[in-house]
């Protein structure tokens, strides 16, 4: 006879049970990813083309406003490439973060009717955002080749940078989603938090414009390291391993902290939603 399942007031799920549960529900996870990706472009006339158009439009607008009019320095990079290298990771990050922050509320109906490890929902959203990222990333590669700035490190660095991006989005998203389940105030704050986050990330300016002390601590925002590293490899500069290493550790800490915060509260979700 297989081991029984015990639902108890006294004993809480241990980490092993949590991991076993995640494994048991892996198919649901992929189903959610599939659903999110499919639903996003259903009944849109241009469909997936939006993923290409959006960063292109923003790249154009940023180049004109920040590059030509405000004369923001780009450390010698061509304007479009400078902005596209930041916008591709940043946009997918921002969308994934705000969607996962609202995910407990938007899936309240499901959560109050069926059991599954709740982390599957924001986790699926982050994974789904990688599909958009892949399209934007292909565009970035094309643009780099066209402008003669392509470097093999762009491909080599992508997995590690994507891991940082995903871990940060999920870690922060988990905390926000749980807070939003309890306090709907969070919903109103999310858009604003994401904007502040963007200003704290060198998207419209190069990292070198920050004061030295800020450059020293910028690894606390792993997205800053992600954006800067993409730009760096496209300029054929050596990777700043101190920044990447520290930012990776920070991102993983955010992820672990987010999971810890989320797990402590997830069993009460159905009662507070």
């Amino acid at each position: 006879m297989p081991t029984p399942t015990i639902i108890s007031a006294e004993r809480h799920e241990r980490i092993r049970q949590f991991l076993r549960d995640l494994w048991d529900y892996r198919e649901l996870f992929w189903t959610f990813v599939e659903r999110d990706v499919k639903v996003r472009y259903k009944q849109t006339a241009l469909g997936v083309i939006w993923v290409v158009l959006q960063p292109l439009f923003m790249m154009g607008a940023f180049s004109v406003i920040f590059g030509k009019i405000a004369k923001m320095p780009t450390d010698g990079m061509p304007l479009p490439l400078f902005y596209l290298a930041a916008l591709v990771p940043w946009n997918t990050f921002a969308t994934a973060l705000s969607q996962s922050a609202l995910s407990m509320e938007s899936n309240a109906q499901l959560i109050s009717k069926v059991y599954f490890p709740r982390i599957v929902v924001p986790g699926g959203i982050i994974c789904g955002s990688f599909v958009d990222f892949a399209i934007g990333w292909t565009l970035l590669n094309g643009m780099a080749i066209w402008l003669g700035h392509w470097h093999w490190q762009l491909v080599a660095m992508t997995p590690i940078l994507l891991l940082m991006q995903g871990a940060t989005a999920l870690g922060v998203g988990l905390v926000l989603s749980m807070l939003n389940a309890q306090y709907r105030d969070v919903k109103h704050a999310v858009g604003f938090v994401v904007q502040i986050f963007m200003l704290a990330t060198p998207v419209i300016y190069p990292l070198s414009r920050l004061p030295l002390w800020a450059q020293h601590w910028i690894f606390l925002n792993p997205m800053a390291a992600v954006v800067t590293t993409y730009r760096g490899v496209l300029q054929n500069m050596p990777v700043d391993w101190r920044l990447v290493g520290l930012a990776l550790v920070t991102a993983l800490l955010y992820l672990v902290g987010g999971i810890w915060f989320f797990r402590r509260r997830e069993i009460y979700l159905a009662d507070i939603l």
């Binding site: 399942t5 015990i6 499901l110 069926v114």
Partner: peptide, 24 residues
Amino acid sequence: ITPPTTGNITYHGRMASLLEVGTG
């Protein structure tokens, strides 16, 4: 979906619950 305040439940095998049709 929600935890008990006291006591416990032990069961064997896979449990599926149907609190609503068309969930999700």
